[in-house]
Amino acid sequence: MERALALLGAGEVVAIPTETVYGLAGDATNGEAVLRIFEAKGRPRFNPLIAHVATMAMAEQVAVFDRLARRLAAAFWPGPLTLVLPHRATSGIHPLVTAGLDTIALRMPKGFGAELIGRFGRPLAAPSANSSGRISPTTVEAVATDLGGRIKLVVNGGATSVGLESTIVKVENGRLHLLRPGGVPAADIEEVVGMALLRGAKSGIQAPGMMASHYAPNAAVRLNAAHVEPHEALLAFGPERVPGAGEVAAMLNLSPCGDLREAASNLFSHLRALDGSGAKTIAVEPIPVDGLGEAINDRLARAAAPRSGIDVVT
């Protein structure tokens, strides 16, 4: 904690554990620190960052909350929900964080991240602690392998509990737009607010995680595989296997019993492990789209997308 606070105060970046994935944190009010996040990740400057806060008082200084946004915060914070809200011009957040938008993405994390932000006293910008577009890290080893040579500290918090990035919801004119499915299932949000989430967004990137190609291993990814070839690796789900599974180069099962929460927790670590098997293609068995399955399928679709690096899903 003390080492992390000293580095953040000096404008450096620190990889920290959260309940979702490991984040690459820097002072959201310090332009040099925010720039170091983009440089360490190789992240495009047009892709905004999430600002993380420790309290509602800190959040209210950064963004404008209406009654609907406060209801969501009360129900899901701290936790894996990010709210996209109107940005207060007096917040002190550096413009690089919002990528020129008049909105800001805010989240209140749990655990070490929350304590760190509380002691630091200012919001932290913290995208996932990995090279831009690649598999998000859920262990300290994954961070160290990818970014260890570019940053000065990786805080070891063990494996993350959720394993998927936060759900991102934009609150606008009394309506809720799902910009990215994630660790909070859409149905849970709809139950709290009593209204349906609107899918899709206006053109352009309005929040992190909206690039078409993202979360990608080096290997190609083949979705909804009805069979698997011997030279492929297999990302399995549930108790039953597709034809050819007994001959594959490597296989890992997201959840042998078909539990979507377990599958979400294992997704990125299993993708990373299969990517290291040497197989040129990872075949993925079908995964239900209900509950957390929506977020799992979203990540897999982006992992399988053509890798132009600039496409946006709307």
Rank of each mutant, 00 (worst) to 15 (best):
M1I: 13
L5V: 07
A6V: 07
L7D: 11
G9T: 12
A10K: 15
G11Y: 05
A15P: 11
T18L: 06
V21K: 04
V21A: 05
L24E: 00
L24T: 00
G26V: 00
A28K: 00
N30Q: 04
E32S: 08
V34E: 00
I37G: 02
F38I: 12
F38N: 07
I50A: 13
V53Y: 02
A54I: 07
A54Y: 01
M56F: 14
M56L: 12
A59H: 08
E60Q: 10
F65T: 05
F65V: 12
F65Y: 12
D66C: 05
L68I: 02
A69K: 01
R71I: 04
R71K: 01
L72F: 10
A74L: 04
A75F: 03
P86C: 00
P86M: 00
P86D: 00
H87T: 05
R88C: 08
S91K: 03
I93C: 01
V97T: 06
T98C: 06
A99E: 07
G100F: 06
L101Y: 03
M108H: 11
M108V: 14
K110H: 15
G111M: 13
A114V: 12
E115N: 13
L116W: 07
G121M: 00
A126I: 08
P127C: 02
G133K: 03
S136I: 04
T139Q: 15
V140K: 11
G148H: 08
R150I: 13
V154S: 04
V154G: 05
N156Q: 14
N156R: 08
G158K: 06
V169N: 09
E172D: 09
N173S: 09
G174Y: 11
L179Q: 02
L179W: 02
P181D: 06
A187D: 14
I189M: 04
E191R: 08
V192D: 01
G194R: 00
M195T: 14
M195P: 12
M195G: 14
L197R: 03
G200Q: 05
A201E: 01
K202F: 10
S203C: 13
S203L: 13
A207S: 05
M211L: 10
A212F: 00
S213W: 03
P217Q: 09
P217T: 12
A219P: 09
A226G: 08
V228A: 03
E229C: 15
E232W: 04
A233M: 07
L235E: 05
A236D: 11
A236C: 05
P239D: 02
E247M: 14
P256E: 12
G258C: 14
D259W: 08
F268N: 14
H270P: 04
L274G: 09
G276T: 14
K280C: 11
T281F: 00
A283P: 11
A283M: 12
V284D: 08
G291R: 15
G291E: 15
G293R: 01
I296C: 09
I296K: 10
N297Y: 06
D298A: 11
A301E: 06
A303S: 03
A305D: 02
P306Y: 00
T314P: 13
